[in-house]
Design a protein around this nucleic acid. Structure first.
Lengths: 337, 337
DNA sequence: TTGAAAGCGCTAACAG
DNA sequence: CTGTTAGCGCTTTCAA
């Protein structure tokens, strides 16, 4: 049984006693500024050994309370259920650690209230920066941070009150749409306008992608079908429902589609699989997002892969510079295979 | 410009002064035990209002230093790059919050040294429990926790020194193998032994899955091909290499395959796509793991979906009971579509 | 009903 | 080279 009752933890005072020295010596040795204090390497070694033997771990709560900077950096993220956000948090952790920062991450399930609560909790933990990823109301979070004297950054979805680092949605969507239109021409002999599906019309990214979508059609001289722009939300079910409704009312669905995320793509593919409309000719899809299995498992799906390392490098540049201009927008081009 | 220099943060002393009362009253009001102290609701209201106005947030470092329990629960996880781990962290966060615990998560990139370092860092933050998910050396982590008087749990991959909650790998693999063998019979007219690919022979889960794999063959009277069991590691490239090597030396690869994870499946699918061997008849696959796109995008792939909510419910039951027997193994059956 | 005061474990002057 | 000391912001007796 490891019915280990939370026994009293070893402190620097315990170590000091064991080493026959003072707590401050122990503290200095254990956090590396012992040359500055010119402590004998003998003592240093002894203290280090004893600390090891006792399995000592500093109490961060106490340490941080005393220091002026926490070196904690927070991130809130909507979900962990797709490669894009997964890659964001993984890269964030790696880059934070590489800079001596301690990353804390929390997911908000796209719930606006949870978002605010999560931001407040992060502030309680004294984060030095808060990065709001894909937040529904980034400006509200920035306000809260500002009031607490904490700096913040928006990622993926922009706000107006803090620097925002996002994909270049317009240019990315324009290129993706172009590629998809050309695929349609090659596969079915003629160009035809695409269906746009997924995302919220109210969010900046979707609006910009629709703009790029339009522009690409214009570039290639293909007329747009206005009622074929369905910003029906991101959830898979929403996309499936929208397609159902269109099939019911129009009797068909365009063969070429611009799908606004892998999340929406899940619903699109599910619906396509369940419908006889594409039995003869498979759909031709462009997806603004990337997933390895989508790339590997059949179908003709072109993807725009958002440049996560690029975005986070930009974010950490700002963190390290310590600046953060109001509402500045940094756009990182997505990558094509 | 939000060149917000980390201004001095508001403390309960500031609030006390503004409210014309004492810090202890503020503290009591702000953390809800003010009826116990019979503070007038008038004062309580006033304090709450002022706190709100000032955008006050408690300093957790100070609060936790004083309290005896941190109510922080830690989890280490190898990667965020697949649905299984993504779902684990998401569910973990939700369940932790529902129980009034603050979850902190860190990923270790399957790096044994990072694993240990991450565990130590978690201890520094005074976590009350540490859940090691898919750790390469869970017992080492348990030892470190034990020395610090912290309780720990293993998830996904078992250890011998703390309770482990894992999938029922043997039964799951047996069922998955059976289903895949039957698929092979239906698709190609006759049963034939499957190829086992992915995972490390040294890890408990892979060993158990291989045992289930053997048992299912035996159940159905199909002989095993010993050299068709390739525990070549999880990484996609490893799986692809192993298939290449087999194709080179034997000139063919079995049509039916048991793939040990979606991670390995990525490599398997990539190789299959690049090889002419399956141009005529597509592979028939059983995958021990689940991914929505694999389910949707063509091919005949049977999946065993690990029961993440079931596993985490078991974990939190133990956390709430406060127990944690050495080396006890709790096996949760995976789900089939 | 409320306030004063001690102290959680650690760091950083400062004094030897 | 090393130890003493004064807090960091908060919670929690205890006394009023």
């Amino acid at each position: 049984m490891n019915q280990q009752r939370p026994q009293k933890k070893t402190t620097i005072y315990d170590l000091a006693e064991l080493a026959g020295t003072s707590a401050s010596a122990v503290s200095a040795v254990l956090n590396g500024n012992w040359k500055k204090r010119r402590i004998s390497s003998q003592l240093a070694e002894k203290i280090t050994r004893i600390a090891e033997e006792q399995g000592y771990a500093v109490n961060m709560q106490a340490s941080l309370l005393r220091r002026e900077k926490s070196r904690i950096i927070g991130m809130i993220v909507p979900k962990y259920d797709n490669r894009y956000f997964g890659s964001i948090v993984e890269t964030f952790e790696i880059m934070a650690r590489a800079r001596g920062l301690f990353p804390i991450i929390t997911c908000t399930l796209r719930d606006p209230d949870l978002e605010i609560e999560a931001a407040r909790t992060m502030l309680s933990y004294q984060v030095e920066w808060l990065i709001s990823t894909g937040a529904t109301d980034p400006d509200r979070i920035t306000d809260i941070c500002l009031a607490a004297g904490t700096r913040s950054l928006n990622l993926d979805l922009p706000g107006t009150k803090a620097t925002s680092i996002i994909s270049d949605n317009f240019a990315g969507a324009r290129e993706l749409t172009k590629r998809t239109l050309i695929n349609v021409e090659q596969k079915s002999g003629a160009m035809a306008p695409l269906l746009f599906i997924g995302g919220r019309g109210s969010d900046h990214n979707t609006a910009e992608r629709i703009r790029g979508f339009r522009m690409a059609h214009q570039d290639l001289g293909v007329p747009i079908e206005e009622h074929h722009i369905l910003a029906c939300g991101y959830a898979p079910e929403k996309a499936a429902q929208a397609l159902s409704a269109m099939a019911a009312s129009e009797g068909s669905v365009p063969r070429g589609m611009f799908v606004n995320s892998t999340i929406s793509l899940e619903g699109v593919m599910r619906w396509i699989k369940s419908s006889p409309l594409f039995d003869a000719a498979p759909p031709i899809i462009g997806c603004f997002d990337w997933d390895p299995f989508v790339a590997l498992l059949g179908h003709d799906i072109e993807m725009a892969r958002q440049d996560v390392p690029g975005m986070l490098t930009a974010a950490f540049d700002i963190v390290e510079k310590g600046s953060g201009d109001t509402g500045k927008l940094i756009e990182i081009p997505p990558l094509f295979a």
